[in-house]
Simulated scan of single mutants.
Amino acid sequence: MNISGNTIFIPGSTSGIGLALALELQAKGNTVIVGGRRTELLERIAAEHPGIDTVRIDTADAASIESAAKEVLARHPDLNVLVTMAGIMKIEDWHRPESFLASAEAVVTTNVLGPIRLIAAFVEHLRAQPDATIVTVSSGLAFTPLKVTPSYNASKAAIHMLSESIRLQLADTSVKVVELVPPSVRTALLPGQESSEFAMPLEEFVAEVVGLLETEPDAKEIQVERVKFLRYGEARGDYDQVVATLNAADPHGN
């Protein structure tokens, strides 16, 4: 992925990693469209950051994705990058189904069906572009599980394998598939995570991501140094130790 000269749609980017990445990519010379559910946040972003376009989208709603895709492509026919950023994370107790089933269904709908539906809405358009990229967003927890967030871990493992698979299928097109693999980052994904010492500072994370996109334009995975402890435990042969360390250091998901 080239770091500049793109038109980029980032649904799920009214806060946290998504918004920080949107602002950095705009600063690098890209046209950026921010998507989110809350119109008041979209209006504030448009007012505070001239040049950023906004579109209302609920990535848990198939009809909303379809409608937003039509709106984005009508206003930005040169769109060539889709970043499937939206996601939710919930703490679950799997001893009792009444305490986790609704949560698990919501996580899968947003984190797995959301990206699938987004890609389905944009892939034909992206295939028609001379140079296009789909950026998926998995997690270090796709490779090492955090005990308190089973559905989130599973959803991100699904995104990793989805990314690997569609990259193979789209190899005969102009569309690249890049997987962003964040560690825990100081955002509001879970209560208390914004101030967690375990989590990576947001500004540091986004700066490293943009640096990797700039220096490694052909990378299949964007891995900041901090996530490699989780990403490669099995390959290094210390998976059990990594699982134990993660869950001892971060017992509440922060």
Rank of each mutant, 00 (worst) to 15 (best):
A171L: 05
L101Y: 06
L202A: 11
G211P: 09
V72S: 09
I134V: 12
A120T: 10
R38G: 11
M89D: 07
I91L: 09
S163Q: 06
Q26T: 00
A86C: 07
S138W: 04
G114V: 10
Q223F: 01
E92T: 05
E179R: 13
V209T: 10
I116Q: 05
E225C: 00
I91R: 15
A142G: 10
V135W: 02
V83H: 09
V206A: 07
W94P: 00
R44L: 03
K70R: 15
I119Q: 01
D93W: 05
L82F: 04
R56N: 15
E164F: 06
T39D: 12
A235Q: 15
G87C: 07
A120E: 14
V72P: 04
N2R: 15
N111M: 05
L41R: 14
I134R: 08
I222Y: 03
M1V: 05
V227C: 10
R167E: 14
A248Q: 12
L212D: 05
I8M: 06
L42A: 13
R167I: 11
A154E: 03
L162T: 09
A46D: 10
V107G: 02
E164G: 09
E40L: 07
N6Q: 14
L118E: 03
V32T: 04
H95I: 00
N6E: 10
Q26S: 02
A20E: 02
L113I: 04
V137R: 07
P183N: 14
S103Q: 11
G233C: 11
N2W: 00
K90D: 04
L118H: 04
V177F: 13
A199D: 05
N80S: 11
E204D: 11
E124L: 07
A69M: 12
V227F: 04
F205W: 06
V123F: 01
H95C: 08
V210K: 04
S64R: 07
G16I: 01
K147F: 15
G35F: 02
Q193F: 00
E204Q: 10
E197R: 12
A69Y: 14
S195D: 13
P251Q: 09
T14R: 02
I3P: 03
S139K: 06
L118D: 01
A142I: 03
K28N: 12
F143A: 12
G12F: 06
T215Y: 01
L230G: 05
T59W: 02
D131M: 02
A219I: 07
T149V: 14
A106M: 08
K156F: 12
D93C: 06
A104C: 06
A199M: 09
L101R: 11
P11F: 11
V224I: 03
I91P: 00
L82D: 09
E92V: 09
D131H: 13
S15E: 09
Q129L: 08
D78H: 08
T54P: 01
A86D: 04
S139G: 11
K28M: 07
Y152V: 02
S138R: 07
N247V: 08
E234F: 01
S155Q: 07
A63Q: 14
I119V: 15
T144A: 15
L73W: 13
E105L: 07
L141V: 06
A154C: 14
S184T: 12
L180Q: 03
A154V: 11
H160W: 14
A188E: 13
L146S: 13
A244F: 01
R226H: 08
